[in-house]
Simulated scan of single mutants.
Amino acid sequence: MDGNEGRDRSLAAIVSGIDRVVCSGTVIGPRHVLTAATCVIDPETGAPFEDRQIMPRIDLDDGYIPAGRRFVQRVYLPAADAPFGPGASLNDQPAIVEVREADGQPAFSEVTAEAGFHYGHAGNDEGLSVDFYDAATGGQMASDGCAALAIEAGDLMPLNCALPEGAAGAAIRSSSGIVGIYLGPGRGRYIGKAEQEGIGRIMTGLQPGQFRVMEAGYAPFISFVLMNGCNQPVSYIARYRAIEARKDLPFSTVSGEIEGGRSAILPLKTENGVIYLRGTADGGRLVWGGDHRFEGEGYFKVAIAAWGDHFHTLNCGE
């Protein structure tokens, strides 16, 4: 079901690597997202994944592009002695993700809505819905009428729905706010009042007594989105290195071809970079790169000061 109409834009995508949506999440604070623990914690090591990023308020179905991806700084999991924690496996736990701050990136509250919680258990007759991302397209979707059949011991909720890949971590909502979280096929967890109070303490910087905190490592990169504004294929070569790198160090190089009117994502493994870009069409004819003029042997220079998503267009016009 298409859920674009009336969406509050609090939905966030949990992304692996450069652009693969693996889970859903919900923006609940200026730097915080609610999701499932399995979306951000490696079950083999018990530590946060280093390649996970958060893309808030994205909706590819209507062409919306987010303000930029955010890397994970901390993950909060239920403490072992919390009312909702004892005996719970990783598969049955929610997680709160706190994202890293970067220059020029606004807080979530400046670019999207923040979802609130519903206080009190959801009855069996209360209509529930689940918002999630489609893993194949990244599109924002919704599944209505996904109802909790019962609330079991440990606040686990059997659900009468099975959502596709990419839905793990999606919020289970009632008309008055979030009541739980979708964890996997037919399985969810109720977000109780004690949990909500602990989440509130996390977002206000207080000691989260109901949660334990895990610091996350990360491997930042520049997501250089190269768009071909020509009506013919264009070959490109991008040479880059960190801005502060010694001048005698070699450049890293990526290359490829983009069909007319299409785009390619170049993951440049650096937090910042000076990039020399060359585009050719028609057997070697140079193409323009936005407003940049060519330097040296047909390359133009782009300096990017911070990791994240950056867009550039190659043009075949005069």
Rank of each mutant, 00 (worst) to 15 (best):
Q53E: 06
A115Y: 04
A12T: 15
G46H: 04
T38G: 00
E50D: 12
Q105A: 15
G308H: 04
T204M: 05
H121N: 14
A136E: 11
A147E: 11
C161P: 08
L314K: 02
G273T: 07
L128Q: 15
R57T: 08
L60H: 06
A115M: 14
L90I: 15
R189W: 01
E271F: 13
H118Q: 14
D144T: 11
V15Y: 04
G217L: 09
G192W: 04
A102P: 00
L226Q: 02
G256N: 06
I243A: 05
E126W: 10
S176T: 15
L149Q: 15
A245I: 05
V130F: 04
K193G: 11
G87M: 07
A12D: 04
Y190V: 04
G169D: 03
G283H: 09
G180N: 06
L268R: 00
R187Y: 09
F49N: 00
F221T: 03
M227C: 07
I178W: 01
A238F: 03
W288M: 11
D131K: 06
A216V: 08
M227N: 14
T112V: 10
V75P: 00
A136M: 05
V21N: 04
S174F: 09
A162F: 11
D81Q: 14
A136S: 15
V302C: 06
Y133L: 02
V130P: 00
G87D: 07
L266K: 01
R278Y: 05
G104Q: 05
D282I: 10
A153E: 14
S174I: 11
R187W: 03
E5N: 14
I304Q: 05
H118W: 08
G200D: 12
G63C: 10
Q93W: 07
T45W: 00
D2W: 09
V302N: 01
L149D: 12
V111G: 01
I258D: 01
P43Q: 08
L156S: 14
G273Q: 01
R173C: 08
I178Y: 06
R189G: 03
T112F: 01
A170F: 08
E114C: 12
R70Q: 04
A281W: 02
I243G: 08
A47D: 05
T38W: 02
R69P: 00
I172F: 02
S10Y: 12
V99S: 01
V22G: 05
K269T: 13
S10M: 08
G198T: 13
C316L: 02
V40G: 01
S176F: 10
A122M: 05
G3L: 12
E44S: 11
E259Q: 15
G298T: 05
A122T: 14
I54P: 00
A115N: 02
